[in-house]
Design a protein around this nucleic acid. Structure first.
Length: 286
DNA sequence: AGGGCCCATCGCA
DNA sequence: TGCGATGGGCCCT
């Protein structure tokens, strides 16, 4: 417990700087603050600031911030206009070639969790991640939840418990640790050893989450396009609600869904974290 | 079975 | 901007 806590503090240090920088930028973008100003605000010299970003995402602060502009988001959406046509072709050639983090998934039928996950036993554990301390939830069949801790761990746990009120959550770090390790290390994303994921939701929710899994890293789409993809072109808002209930954040990449205009619109774990994920992925793609 | 309410949307004036 | 249509999920009757 104490050991995990210490490791996490160290691992979190870069992210906390990045997070503060994003938050500062979001407030002050009208004034066009330069790199030196942002570095000073988060308590670093420009050199230290630069090093933090290189270490954390593999790119410079300048490139990172460029990846978060509205212009960049719009370009991403233009380039990805026929993204689902392309991924359909890929999907037909391989059963689970989903997302760069190769994932195999299965869905629990509504029958199996009718009363809010009654009879389900879920293991959970807390682990360091590039986006703050992560809370991983898993069954014997695969990863079922991924959230983040802001403040007390108890809050993160309550968030997961609320998704399956009748399930029993049991702490088991040994079971969840491999999932946390895999999810955040792109060099471990291999087709030969896909990450097993269990999607627990209604038919509609599962179809939305499956669509999310086909969005490649570094790309983005909109709520409306997902609605069209699942043959419900007017259900963009329902899609938004379903995405908001995605239990396996990051792995099921709901952060790659933007509003029609390229605006971030929303994120269950905070818009700052959504920006951090998009910027981090921009670094992984270079 | 059906009404009311919430929601990370969207398009149009 | 602001507003109304929209569809799914959930809770209540």
């Amino acid at each position: 417990m104490m050991l995990a806590r210490t490791m996490n503090d160290v691992g979190d240090d870069d992210y906390s700087r990045v997070r503060d920088a994003i938050a500062f930028m979001s407030q002050k973008w009208r004034a066009h603050p330069d790199i030196e100003t942002i570095a000073a605000h988060v308590g670093l010299t420009p050199k230290q600031f630069h090093d933090v970003f290189r270490r954390w995402a593999g790119l410079s602060p300048k490139d990172f911030l460029a990846a978060l502009t509205l212009d960049h988001a719009r370009k991403l959406l233009r380039d990805g206009a026929n993204l689902f046509d392309a991924s359909l072709e890929l999907g037909l050639s391989g059963p689970s070639r989903l997302h760069d983090l190769f994932v195999t998934h299965e869905a629990l039928s509504p029958h199996e969790f009718r009363k809010g996950g009654e009879g389900l036993v879920l293991s959970y554990g807390f682990h360091p991640s590039p986006f703050g301390e992560a809370l991983v939830v898993a069954t014997a069949r695969g990863m079922a939840g991924l959230g983040f801790v802001d403040g007390a761990r108890q809050h993160g746990l309550a968030d997961m418990q609320a998704r399956w009120p009748a399930a029993r959550l049991v702490e088991d770090q040994d079971l969840t640790a491999p999932y946390a390790g895999r999810a955040f290390q792109p060099e471990l994303w291999q087709a030969e050893t896909p990450l097993r994921v269990v999607l627990i939701g209604t038919d509609f929710e599962v179809s939305v989450w499956e669509t999310l899994l086909t969005i490649p890293m570094g790309q983005a789409t909109t709520y409306g396009r997902i609605a069209s993809k699942i043959a419900r072109p007017r259900a963009a808002r329902a899609v938004g609600a379903a995405i908001g209930r995605n239990p396996i954040s990051f792995v099921v990449p709901c952060h790659r869904v933007l509003g029609q205009t390229g605006a971030l619109t929303g994120y269950h774990w905070g818009l700052t974290r959504k920006q951090a994920m998009l910027g981090w992925e921009a670094g992984q793609c270079m």
